[in-house]
Design a protein around this nucleic acid. Sequence first.
DNA 1: ACTGACACGTGATTC
DNA 2: TGAATCACGTGTCAG
Lengths: 156, 156
Amino acid sequence: MECFDDEYTNYWETNMFLQTQELDSYFDEAISAYYDSSSPDGMQSSMASKNIVSERNRRKKLNERLYALRSVVPNITKMDKASIIKDAIGYIQSLNDEVGRIQSQISELESNGGMSSSNNANFGHFDQEATTTYCSKLKRSTSFISSPIEVLEVSQ
Amino acid sequence: MECFDDEYTNYWETNMFLQTQELDSYFDEAISAYYDSSSPDGMQSSMASKNIVSERNRRKKLNERLYALRSVVPNITKMDKASIIKDAIGYIQSLNDEVGRIQSQISELESNGGMSSSNNANFGHFDQEATTTYCSKLKRSTSFISSPIEVLEVSQ
DNA sequence: ACTGACACGTGATTC
DNA sequence: TGAATCACGTGTCAG
């Protein structure tokens, strides 16, 4: 899927969410035109342009992460940058409630029905297990996901 | 903790670096000049200050949401604004895996023990149930625009 | 010294 | 219209 490859393309696509102001990065070669190491002015402008491109990369990374967050959360109501985070918070809380409810159901089922052969010794605090898997998953940050979400590539 | 040392008055230096946007907005000064007030500069500065305070509120709201997102996600590795979102994505995925695993466990337990009356027919899409509870939670969303979201459905 | 992260003000744009 | 949102460049500050 790899949305948000910027730079003057995907005009129709990002118009739903972003405002179309990526045309300025089309002209960024004009800003970082040349740096002459002999002149101090060129040195300063080179440093300024490096700061500019670094900041631009930072902004792009953050937007990409925000897109990835939006893609994992179902039922996005608004495309805002703040509403995406709000919906993500609500979805995380609903998932926590879901896990707690299902685990209470499983405990009831085990106590009712037959013998329990599973390994839920510490299921009292329900998101313990998810936390551990999350921590084990967070060791390596490149291409580790193996869940149905492969296209997000949140790494780096 | 927040630093408020600003108030720089070098006003022409920022105009020097606007060369790429002035290509497009070279004529926009005439557009923003139809305020028929007695002092056009005063009106323009008033609207500029309103824009400033609006933008400041927007930034504060977004930071607040980001802090709230950080508070619901356990095991935050870094305090960065991008790492918070990355950890939230990983946590959501781990919660999805957790729900799927627990539901498969519950289906196995039910098939062992007694009659299963739940809706495990479509549990391959395991977070269906969490999605419904999440949908029931946000009650004010009007008409659930489904067309732009369906593109993102392939990744969850 | 230098990189990375962040808040700020500002022009532009959409509804 | 006007309010809300966004990307951008810039200054600043910590490691």
